[in-house]
Amino acid sequence: AFSSEQLARLKREFNENRYLTERRRQQLSSELGLNEAQIKIWFQNKRA
């Protein structure tokens, strides 16, 4: 489960760009304390 802070950040990123570069995913992973797979799957689900 994502914290409300993490979700807000993911939604902001998604609004700016529906697709993440690998580098951006790595940055978000480290900033949010999530693993890259969690972020990747969140974006895939959000696009679906």
Rank of each mutant, 00 (worst) to 15 (best):
K11Y: 13
E16Y: 08
F43Y: 06
S3E: 03
A37D: 15
F14G: 01
E22T: 12
F43M: 03
I41M: 14
F2P: 05
G33V: 04
F43D: 00
T21I: 02
I39K: 01
F43C: 04
K11H: 15
F14A: 03
E36N: 04
Q44T: 07
R18M: 12
S3L: 04
E5H: 09
E22N: 12
A1E: 11
T21E: 05
L28Q: 00
K11R: 14
E36F: 05
E16A: 10
L7Y: 05
L20S: 02
L20R: 01
R24S: 05
R12S: 11
L10M: 04
F2G: 01
R47D: 07
E5V: 08
I39W: 03
R9D: 03
E16C: 10
S4K: 14
E31R: 02
Q44N: 07
Q27V: 09
Y19W: 11
Q38P: 02
R12G: 06
K46C: 08
A37G: 09
S3T: 15
N35W: 05
A8R: 10
N17I: 03
L7V: 08
L28S: 01
A48R: 10
E5G: 07
T21Y: 03
S29I: 05
E5P: 04
L10N: 01
W42G: 00
E13N: 01
Q38N: 05
E36T: 06
A48C: 09
K11D: 15
R12A: 14
L32A: 03
E16N: 09
E36L: 05
R18H: 11
K40C: 11
F2L: 12
F2A: 02
Q38V: 14
F14L: 03
S4V: 13
S30P: 01
Q27Y: 08
A8K: 10
Y19E: 10
Q26G: 06
A48T: 08
E5K: 07
R18Q: 13
S3A: 04
N17W: 05
E22I: 10
L20F: 03
Q27N: 07
L34Y: 02
K40A: 15
R25V: 15
K46N: 11
F14C: 04
L10V: 01
A48D: 10
A37I: 13
S3N: 11
F2M: 10
R12W: 11
R18E: 10
S3P: 02
N35A: 14
E5L: 09
T21V: 03
R47Q: 13
A1M: 14
L32F: 03
E16W: 07
I39L: 07
L7W: 03
A1T: 13
Q27A: 10
N17M: 04
T21L: 02
G33R: 05
F2Y: 08
R24V: 10
R12F: 13
Q44H: 11
E31H: 03
I41S: 11
Y19C: 07
S4R: 12
A37P: 04
R23W: 11
Q27W: 09
W42I: 03
E16Q: 13
R47G: 07
S29C: 08
L34V: 12
Q27F: 08
E36P: 11
R25A: 15
A8L: 08
F14M: 02
I39T: 01
R18V: 07
I39Y: 01
S29Q: 05
Y19R: 06
K11M: 15
K40G: 10
L7A: 05
L28V: 02
F43S: 00
R47I: 13
L10Q: 01
Q6P: 01
R18I: 09
K46F: 12
A8C: 08
S4F: 11
Y19P: 04
A1G: 12
E13R: 02
S4N: 12
Q38E: 14
F2N: 02
S29N: 01
E5Q: 08
L10W: 01
E31F: 03
R9K: 08
L28N: 00
F43H: 00
K46H: 12
E36I: 07
R12I: 12
E36V: 11
Q26D: 05
I39R: 00
Q6G: 02
K40W: 12
E5F: 09
N17Y: 06
F2D: 00
S30L: 14
R9S: 07
Q6R: 02
A1N: 11
E22R: 13
A1K: 11
N35K: 08
R12T: 10
L7T: 07
S30G: 08
A37F: 12
S3C: 03
I41G: 08
Q27K: 09
S29F: 03
R24Q: 09
N45H: 11
N17A: 05
R23G: 11
E36S: 08
G33C: 12
R12K: 13
N15D: 13
I41Q: 14
N17C: 11
S3F: 03
E36M: 05
R24K: 12
E13I: 06
R25M: 15
N45T: 10
R18D: 06
K46D: 04
N15L: 12
N45F: 08
S30H: 13
F2Q: 02
S3R: 04
L34M: 07
Q6M: 06
Q44F: 09
N15A: 14
S30D: 10
Q44A: 12
S30C: 09
L7K: 05
